[in-house]
Design a protein around this nucleic acid. Structure first.
Length: 425
RNA sequence: GGAGAGAUGCUAGAGUGGUUGAAUAGGCUGGUCUCGAAAACCAGUGUGGCACUUGUUGUCACCGAGGGUUCGAAUCCCUCUCUCUCCGCCA
């Protein structure tokens, strides 16, 4: 959520930011409601002040045995007025809140202005030693590989739950589990994160806190009976750990890493991207979340990307880093890098990670602050998160890049101590 | 699922419907004392909104959340959430 005061003081900046995100701008509406709100506050505060002093008088009069019925009758009038104005104020504030919850974060000035993913900017590529884009070679795609080696079964997954619910078998299941454990261990050992194992179902307040709701509610699974949402990413529970809390400045940055299954309805996005692992309703992801001081958040973003990259370097999987343009940024993000891994069979890059700085957008929604040691005052933290990484797309790149001409798959060296085998055949 | 108890500041814990934004103790911060420390003593110690003469300013709101009663609510009433205890069920 954006600061109302900031919108009031920088309406043009906010309008431009929203426009660059291809979102509808309701700033004028907000400003009008804000003005009305402040006017009502002025009126009610004055009346309440009057009520407070007079009510005290009544107490004293009664104590000394005087008759206060005259004043009480007058005050009843005042109270009725207060009630009326208060209900108007509530209405205005609710309306304002409703609109504000739909206002996106505005992009950082370093983000290139653009309309869609076409305008994203490639920052760098990393390729393993000896790697080449061998377009002429015949590569099996991950679906063929999975079927042939009996490690992935999308048909039976669909039987169990519907399309988009992958079923892993045998060494495929072991590989998936190993990948998750490897990534967690790596971030714990080399990057200084603390491990979290979060709940996979969260309440509405948590979903609001990180910004999935209300705007993206249609894309979320929802268990009506209990009012709970299966999480679309571990970002939601992990960021909300500190909802309504004030952290110590000396504890920052707080860095968490956690695994979760991720559940996404992907409403309305069926199409050519939907085969196999490319778009699924349930997948596994290791997520990094940071709570940091405002002045450090952009440095922390770079480090976050590096942390995710280290995993791919260790796995020897080719990738590239994109800086998303304003039009491709998500609702809550101010700046975001995507990491895409190479799929030789698809002959293109696949998004495997997304690392974002939300500045204080989520912190304001979720009321996550720290106490500034100099000023002694609480301030909003900046929150960041990044996938480190999602296994589904990564598994596509892994299987395809590590396939042998005989149709087997070699297990990346760093994973072998986790899997207990070196080859899938 | 059934029965009961509770939710107050950083913590513990008090609070006859009327200077209670909140006693008291502990903690924390600063000071006195000390070569230094401890002890003792003194002082300070919430958040948010709004206004303007932007101030050691004024005012409003906040005692789990939301409603209600009242001139006046931490205190009375209703609903919800959470925590704890006992019983049942259970990985």
């Amino acid at each position: 959520m954006l600061d109302l005061k900031f919108i009031r003081e920088n309406p043009e900046l906010v309008k431009q930011g929203i426009k660059n995100k291809n979102e509808k701008d309701r700033v004028d509406e907000i400003l009008a409601l804000d003005e009305k709100r402040r006017d009502l506050i002025l009126q009610t505060d004055e009346l309440k002040a009057k009520r407070n002093t007079v009510s005290q008088q009544v107490g004293q009069m009664k104590k000394s045995g005087q008759d206060a019925s005259q004043i009480i009758a007058e005050m009843k009038n005042v109270s009725d007025q207060i009630a009326l104005l208060d209900s108007q104020l509530n209405e205005v504030e609710e309306k304002l809140e409703d609109i504000l919850m739909f206002v996106p974060n505005i992009p950082h000035h370093s983000v290139p202005v653009g309309k869609s993913s076409e305008d994203n900017v490639e920052i760098r590529q990393w390729l393993p030693e000896g790697f080449s884009f061998r377009k002429e070679d015949k590569f099996s795609d991950h679906i063929e590989i999975g079927k042939k080696l009996k490690i992935l079964d999308f048909e039976r997954g669909a039987k169990l739950s519907g399309s988009g619910f992958p079923l892993y078998l045998g060494k495929g299941a072991t590989l998936e589990r190993s990948l998750i454990n490897f990534m967690l261990d790596y971030h714990l050992e080399y990057h200084g994160y603390s491990e979290i194992f979060p709940p996979f179902l969260v309440n509405r307040d948590s979903m609001k806190g990180t910004g999935q709701i209300p705007k993206m509610e249609e894309d979320m699974y929802y268990i009506e009976k209990d009012g709970l949402f299966p999480i679309p990413t571990a970002e939601v529970p992990i960021t909300n750990i500190h909802r309504n809390e004030i952290l110590n400045e000396k504890d920052l940055p707080v860095k968490y890493v956690g695994y979760s299954s991720c559940f996404r309805r992907e409403a309305g996005s069926y199409g050519k991207e939907s085969k196999g692992f490319l778009r699924v309703h349930q997948f596994n992801k290791v997520e990094m979340v940071k709570f940091v001081k405002p002045e450090t958040s952009y440095d922390e973003l770079e480090k976050l990307v590096n942390d995710a990259e280290d995993i791919l370097k260790a796995l020897q999987i080719p990738y590239r880093i994109l800086m998303l343009c304003t039009g491709d940024l998500s609702f809550s993000a101010a700046k975001c890098y995507d990491i895409e891994t190479w799929s030789p069979a698809e002959n293109r890059w696949l998004e495997s990670s997304s690392c974002s700085n939300f500045e204080n957008f989520q912190a304001r929604r979720a009321n996550i602050r720290f106490r500034n040691e100099k000023t002694k005052k609480p301030e909003f933290v900046h929150t960041l998160n990044g996938s480190g990484l999602a296994t589904s797309r990564l598994m596509v790149s892994l299987l395809e890049n590590y396939q042998t001409p005989e149709g087997k798959v070699i297990v990346p060296k760093v994973l072998q101590k986790y899997t207990g085998f070196e080859i899938i055949d």
